[in-house]
Design a protein around this nucleic acid. Structure first.
Lengths: 181, 181
DNA sequence: CTAAACGTTCAGTAATTATTGAAAGTTAAA
DNA sequence: TTTAACTTTCAATAATTACTGAACGTTTAG
């Protein structure tokens, strides 16, 4: 496993971005490495390519599996496990998006639902309650929207995104549209 | 600054979520505190409420300003600075979203643009190139889409998000719609 | 000009998070 | 059943990130 400079560059970049995408540097590099290689890699190949310990690879793979970002391949007559990205680039991005929604939004939504049920017993709490309600409504809207997007086929999604500046036209015609349906 | 249990609960939760939203625990708490309080707070009030040092508040405010999440108020005849959220809940969410796009997507887009210009000189690089192109296209689509969403008024945005399950109908009618415009 | 009241900076330290590597677990061939 | 070829786990440690508090900077009132 000797990476060409171009590929190494990409992998290192994924490492730097790793923590911003929700994992850590090593796991970012692992994603980059798996995505950029046409063929599945063994844990040892990953350890060697990234110059990290075998144990670290094992933990990283475990984490990536919890995000559903990798799948395991087996070669007949070979006991090693071969790891590959679990789907296309598009699929992976979707999974990251979904998983982050679960981690970044769902817990707050749960908390807010509980808090809102309690009644306020001071002016400060009254205001706090209102703010919590706003946050709740926002997050709920985002969650529903995100569920809708997940239901679309990749083609529909691309189609929607490529609407671009005509999005506002769509919105303006929404009412007319809804009457038809 | 003595927080009621309910409010304290919310603030602590914001702290726990802080790092998932892109900052750290203290800064998460600061956002929570500012949002949940009807009136702007001074740095000392923040320090006291969150039981952190004055210096930490100063650094936190600086960070929040870089995200454009707080604004400063002044009271005539009072030298203290009063901090408040920079807009509605909706505005804040938008700013976090936008800032995160800058940090999580833009640097990768820049890298990929450069890498794609270079020609591949081996089969592995050929494949790598294709993958990078896919990632690039995906990120570019997301970036453009996000720019579109930023251009909408909050009302239009809400309206779009509330389309819910009729999103697919909108997409299916896209062609018809585009012909009209 | 001086002092008081504020804000900022940053070196040192504390807290958290990531990594290693050795030990233990698992599987299957011989 | 033994052994070899793997994977996993986790305590110790390294690396990173966050926080404190003292020193310094700035502004204004007296």
């Amino acid at each position: 496993m000797n990476l060409s400079p171009k590929i190494e560059n990409f992998v290192l970049h994924c490492g730097e971005m790793g923590s911003r995408w929700g994992f850590n540097r090593t796991i970012g590099q692992m994603v980059g490495l798996l995505v950029i290689n046409e063929h599945p890699l063994t844990a040892n190949q990953i350890a060697e390519a990234l110059k990290i310990s075998r144990g670290n690879v094992s933990m990283g793979i475990k984490e990536l599996q919890s995000w559903q970002l990798v799948k395991v391949h087996h070669v007949p007559g070979d006991r090693k496990e071969y790891y590959a990205p679990n789907g296309t680039i598009w699929d992976l991005a979707n999974k990251v998006f979904e998983e982050r929604r679960k981690r970044e939004i769902d817990p707050t939504l749960t908390l807010l639902r509980d808090q809102i049920l309690d009644s306020a017993n001071s002016p400060e709490e009254k205001y706090a309650q209102e703010q919590m309600q706003s946050i709740h409504d926002l997050l709920e809207t985002v969650t529903k929207w995100s569920a809708e997007l997940q239901r679309l086929t990749p083609e529909q999604l691309q189609s929607l995104m490529k609407l671009g500046s005509s999005v506002s036209k769509v919105i303006d015609l929404k009412d007319k549209l809804l009457k038809k349906s």
